[in-house]
Amino acid sequence: MKPEQLSPGAALDPSSLKLQIDAAIVSAGLTIEPGWRPGIDAHFEAIARAAAQVMEFPLDDELDPAPVFAP
């Protein structure tokens, strides 16, 4: 087992999450109404909490991602 050195806590910092959303909205060219933002932020926090559980779990480097492409 080769543990991956990751800091899930950093990913859950609220101001960092908001910055991620800001960047995504700009880079994807989305236009959002101000009233939508609290809902978006809450959903992204939930996703980030789930992602932290995934990111903190050590996995072997050799483990392939699940989807397989057959040429």
């Binding site: 809450a42 959903h43 995934v54 779990f57 483990l63």
Partner: peptide
Amino acid sequence: RDRLIAGSAIPASWVIKAQRLRRW
């Protein structure tokens, strides 16, 4: 809509790790 917009901010590293966890 709000969930989908939130999903658009997910970094690729989270998704790939999730797919590797799926294999494990």
